[in-house]
Each structure stands twice: as C-alpha cells, then as structure tokens.
Design a protein around this nucleic acid. Structure first.
Lengths: 233, 233
DNA sequence: GTCTATATACGGATAGAC
DNA sequence: GTCTATCCGTATATAGAC
C-alpha cells in the first residue's frame, strides 16, 4: 500500500473513532445531539494536541483550550469531567487506532519479508497521518494515571511483540539470519518512533515517509536478511 | 574504553562542572561559601531530575522541590531567580558535559571504524551514567525558553553531525559502503536515544550497556561495512 | 544562610443566567 | 448548549525574623 492510498483509507475511518469515543463516554458527555458532539470533540482533541505539543499538557491551561477551541469554559466541561479525562480519551482513541491499522496491514501477508515491509510501512504511514497524536502519546505517557499508564505500556509491548514475531518467524523458516529478534525489534521501533518525534527535522531535509520506510527496510534487511530486499510496496 | 573505566573517569570530572555552573551564575547565587553552594546545587539538580522525570517539570512544584531537597523555599531561591532558571542551568551543564566527553572519546582514533565504535560507546556510556539528565533534557526540550531551545537544537545537530562525519570519512576511504550517511547517522542517534529513554525496559530484560553497544555496532556495520565488525574494546 | 509566613496571581472547576 | 462570573485551592516568589 502506498502512502496516498493509506491516507485516503484512514481519513474515512476517522469519524468512526469519534463515534466510538462518544459511545464510550456517553455517561459524562452532557450534550445530546450527536453531530454537535462529534464536531466539538474533534475541535477539543485537535486543540489539545496542538497546545500540548507546543508546551506540554500540564502547562496547557483550560483557558488556553477555551481560547483555541472557541468554546467557553462551561461548554468545555460538558464534554468531560476533568482535564485529565481529556488525556484518557485521547489515549484510548489512539490505542484503538494503532492496533486496528497495524493488524489490518499485516493480515494479508504470509512471507516474513513481506509482512515486515507491510508492518513498517503501516506504522510509518499511521504516525505520519496522526503525527500530533503519536507525539503527544509518547511525550505525555508518564503523566497518565496509573491505570492508563499500564494500558499504554501494554500497547507499546504489543507493537514491539508484533515485530519480534515477524522476525522470529523469518528466522525459523530460514529466510533471516540468526539474530537477537527482540533487540532488533526494539531498535526498529526506536527508528519508527524517531519519524514522528523528529518530524520537523526530516521535513526540513526533504525526506519523505516512503523514502524513510525504504531506508529502514534496507537497513534491517542488511542485518537480518540472507538476500537483498525487494520493494514490496 | 570499557564502561567501568568510563564511569570512574566521569565521576571525578563531575565536581568541575558544578564549579563551572557556579562561576556562570555567580551574579544570581546569593550564597557565598563555595562548598555549601556545590553541595546544594547537586541536591537541587538531583531532586529536580528525579521529580521532573516522574511527573514532568511543569507539574513539579517548588514545594515538592523544597521537600525533596530538604531546603526551605527561601533557601532555594537564593540559588536561582525563577523556576525556569533551574531548567537553563541544567541544560547548560548537560550540553557542556556531552560535548566534552564525545569529543574526547574520538580524538585519539583515526580509522573510521574505530572512531565509530568509540563514539557509540562514549554516547551510550555517558547516557548510562547520566541517564536522568539525558531523559530530562529530551523530554523537557520543548519547554525551554526560545534562546535555550535553539542551543539545544544546535547541540543535537552537533552530535548527529559527528556521526555523519565519521560515516562519510569511512565512505570516502572505501572502508564503508555507499549509503546515505546523514540518514544512517540519524537512525543511529535514534537507537542511542532509546537506550536512555527506555532504560527500564532494557534493565528488566537484562541487556547491559556493553551488550547494547556491541549490538548497535554490529547492526550499523552490517549496513555500512565491507567487512565484519571487530570489537575494538 | 536559612527559616516561616505571606503577597499575589493563576489554575481547575462550577453555578446559574440566557 | 453555551455563556459569564465566581469559588477556592495551589502555585511562584518574596519579606522579614532569627
């Protein structure tokens, strides 16, 4: 899947996730009309990501958020009970998103090499479209309440496990070299994360997401692969 | 240099940097006796790192800091003029530290392969000893005032440039393959950063800093090298 | 030099009008 | 549903005693 295809695919699903967020928090959201809620949730989430990524969630005041969204303090508080709840809602959406698209991306593929390519591309494309979200999630993870924090760690481990499994299956069927799969997956993940953590750097250097994907796959391939990598893209 | 050697080396230099911090801020530090200042600066910096890394610098209150250091609010404010100034002082020290030890580590080496090994090890060892500091610097970078932020970016670029230069010199003398050196250096840096950003993960898996260094060098070597990597100690 | 006590401002959250 | 006005806790920073 190319980035353009992926982008189109994801834009259409985005509304569904806001609907799900609404469903999960129907008890605290006091506004009745669904259309209204979806529009305002998107405003609130967008503004939260923007402001938090500039100066951190803790430093963002509710008055800042009010100004940025154009909603009054009172109006804001009819969508959640506390500032921290915004954090939880955002995290919840992000986790669902990531899980869905990563699993979807690899489910068609059988060969480890192809699976790896699909998973790496899916992760990069996803974090490209949702950059603000991924950045936020990474930077604010330690500020989450305990319950949320353990969910976040679980989600991290899920992603890493996914890559480890692909590498291990490749090793077992002889397609890949004998390497430490878990450590390799861990390093791969670090490089995937760098894409959304330092996006400004890559943008200013004119590195596209597809170029970065290709580069990562070449590097991993040179390390684990028995033959040169072919672009499955 | 092994990690044990490095650790010993660095501990002895640490005091010098507190002395330098004092010298740079003599005008705002109202306490006269040098010994007193050095002890308390270390307390303040240590506590700031501990508390900030738990819940973020913005969420750390001066009362928290007072409790943690055992100094009263009034006493604290005789070492700086504002909370933000603690941030600046920490950043300043960290930058000086990193620059010194990275340059020192590679200055003896000539061959690109050896230089790379020395630089990678130095960076990992440094971030191992100063983990709290590196973590803090990464996480709080965006909260710095503008002047400090540009210094931080400059320092980041310096480090990356150092690795890029090593890779390029290796390519020029035919020791390394034709690869995109800047992108390779960027990815290498991402993996180096992961070591201090996810230290808990690596600790719980029993990965030592020397093992991680060796692993990174093997991976980079398989990508850029024409021959297998030899452990340079 | 360090303490306690306090000035002053800003934060999150809510009540009640419209 | 959304607004304005306000409560009240907590934050940073400082004054002044010892």
């Amino acid at each position: 899947m190319t980035f353009a295809e992926f982008q189109k695919h994801i834009r259409t699903s985005q509304k569904d996730f806001y609907r799900e967020t609404l469903a999960n928090h129907r008890d605290v959201i006091r506004v009745k009309k669904e259309g209204k809620v979806l529009v305002n949730l998107e405003k609130i989430f967008g503004a939260t990501l923007k402001l938090s990524n500039q100066k951190g969630f803790a430093a963002m005041s509710m008055r800042d958020l009010s100004r940025e969204t154009g909603l009054s303090m009172g109006a804001l508080y009819s969508y959640f009970n506390s500032k921290d709840e915004i954090l939880s809602m955002l995290q919840e959406q992000q986790r669902a998103f990531t899980k869905k698209f990563l699993e979807e991306a690899i489910e068609g593929e059988q060969a480890p090499r192809k699976k790896l390519g699909a998973a790496v591309r899916a992760h990069l494309y996803l974090s490209e479209v949702m950059q603000a979200w991924f950045y936020f999630s990474y930077m604010e993870a330690k500020n989450l309440p305990d319950a949320e924090k353990s969910s976040a760690v679980k989600s991290e481990r899920f992603t890493e496990r996914l890559f480890t499994d692909i590498l291990e299956s490749g090793r077992e069927c002889g397609e890949f070299h004998q390497v430490d799969c878990r450590l390799t997956a861990s390093c791969l993940k670090a490089m995937l994360q760098d894409w959304y953590l330092k996006r400004g750097k890559y943008a200013s250097r004119g590195v596209t997401v597809e170029r970065y994907a290709q580069f990562l796959l070449e590097m991993i391939e040179s390390f684990v692969g028995r033959q040169s990598y072919e672009n499955s893209g």
